[in-house]
Design a protein around this nucleic acid. Structure first.
Lengths: 110, 110
DNA sequence: TAATTATATTGCAATATTACGATAAAGATT
DNA sequence: AATCTTTATCGTAATATTGCAATATAATTA
C-alpha cells in the first residue's frame, strides 16, 4: 500500500526509524554536518552551500526540524538553524548500545 | 524529479545516508534488533516475528542486505541471516564522532 | 519423483519522496 | 509606501517505497 504499519512496532523502533529516515538523504546529512561545522547558521548560507534549489533545501530543513534534529529561530529577516542535540544523542546512544551488545556477544552465527 | 542528486555529495555523506535510509523503517529496525537478540536467525523466524507478509519481509531483508547491514547464508533449505557488523560500526562511530564534536563546541547558537 | 517447505521474485496498487518554478509571507531598506 | 531580501508554501512531475497476492525457485522429505 505504501504506508508503513507503524502501529505494529514499539515506540523506540518507530523513533529510531523516524530519525534514521530523516538522515536518509545525503542533502540532509550535509546540512547536519554544515550546522555542526559552523556556528553561524543562517538558512541562506545552507542554501548557498548545497547544490539544490531554495525550495528543495527549505523542504529538507523542514524534515530535519520535524524529526527534532534541528531547530530554527527567527533572526530579524532571516532564520537561524542549528542542531537540536537531544534527538541526535538518542541516535548516538542507540547505536553505541547496539555495538556494545554485539561486542559482548562475539556473534559467530554466519 | 524524485531522484536524489547523490553525485553532488561526498562519498561519506552518501554512505551515511544509505545506511540511515536502510534503518528508516520500523520493520527493518525490528529485524536488526531481533538479529542482535537471538543467535539462531532463520528467515522464517523473522517472518513469524513481524506483522508483515512473507514477501514484504523478504523485501526488507533485501534492503538491509543491499546496505550491507546484514548478510545471509544458505542453511540447507532455509536461509540464516545475521548482522554484518562492519557497516553498523561505521554508523556508530559516525554518530559518536558527531556527538563528540558537539560536546566540545558547547554550541550556543539558538 | 511427487509433495512439502522455505525463500525470492513478479506484478501491481497505494502512497511517499524528491525536486523545482511560481508565488506567498514577513521583515528590512530605501 | 514601494522595493528588496529571505524563507516558506503550493502545485506538479518524476521517481521511489511499501505491501501483498500470485508465482517461481530451490532444497527436503515422503
Amino acid at each position: 500500500m505504501g504506508a508503513s504499519k507503524t502501529e505494529h512496532f514499539t515506540d523506540e523502533q518507530n523513533a529510531i526509524a523516524t530519525l534514521s529516515k530523516a538522515l536518509g538523504h545525503p542533502a540532509r546529512v550535509a546540512i547536519m554536518e554544515y550546522l555542526i561545522k559552523v556556528d553561524t547558521c543562517i538558512c541562506g548560507d545552507i542554501v548557498n552551500k548545497l547544490p539544490l534549489a531554495q525550495p528543495t533545501v527549505s523542504q529538507h530543513l523542514k524534515e530535519l526540524k520535524n524529526a527534532g534534529l534541528i531547530k530554527g529561530s527567527i533572526e530579524g529577516n532571516a532564520i537561524c538553524y542549528c542542531i537540536d542535540e537531544k534527538e541526535l544523542t538518542k541516535l548516538q546512544s542507540y547505536f553505541a548500545n547496539i555495538s556494545d551488545k554485539l561486542e559482548k556477544k562475539k556473534s559467530n552465527c554466519c
